[in-house]
């Protein structure tokens, strides 16, 4: 059976919404019956992206984060959007252990983790306009067995 679903949620760029975003994505993919590992990886991706928006996009100031969730059969697409300051050098930001805020004990692993935990990873950013992170992940679910 063909499965398709779409949802989006917009929330304040507050750190307590990191857990909220993880819960939302967990709930959204539940009908696909993901494995514990897959669910954990999706939650981690969302957590890293939302944290980046809060810390780097808005630098802990007021703002909104939008999370778009879609699936088509076993393919999940997550898009996390902020309208913050943007990333000056995306390639630099993608380097492992690079962080623009070493004084805040950032590990510099966020983007690398998102990349490893997903099957496709895109990031685009424009100074003064914001950042869009898009990931695709294929689940190993047995969708056809579901009712």
């Amino acid at each position: 059976m063909f499965k398709r679903n779409y949802a989006e949620v917009v929330f304040d760029a507050l750190s307590q919404n990191e857990a909220f975003a993880r819960m939302v994505v967990s709930g959204f993919v539940m009908p696909l019956d993901p494995t514990i590992d897959e669910l954990n990886e999706l939650k981690t991706i969302v957590s890293e992206a939302v944290t980046n928006s809060i810390i780097h996009g808005y630098e802990n100031k007021k703002g909104k984060v939008k999370m778009v969730m879609e699936y088509e059969n076993e393919w999940i697409t997550l898009t996390i959007i902020d309208y913050g300051k943007g990333i000056e050098d995306v390639n630099k930001a993608r380097e492992l252990f690079y962080t623009s805020k070493p004084e805040e004990e950032r590990s510099g692993m966020g983007l690398t983790i998102m990349e490893i935990f997903s099957d496709e990873f895109y990031i685009s950013s424009k100074i003064g306009e914001g950042t869009i992170v898009k990931v695709k992940k294929k689940l190993t679910c047995s969708c056809e067995n579901d009712v």
Binding site: K43, E48, I113
Partner: peptide, 13 residues
């Protein structure tokens, strides 16, 4: 039950 790179940052710190 959950840890992301922020948690890694705390341990490394």
């Amino acid at each position: 039950t959950f840890m992301d790179s922020s948690g890694i940052g705390v341990i490394l710190g």
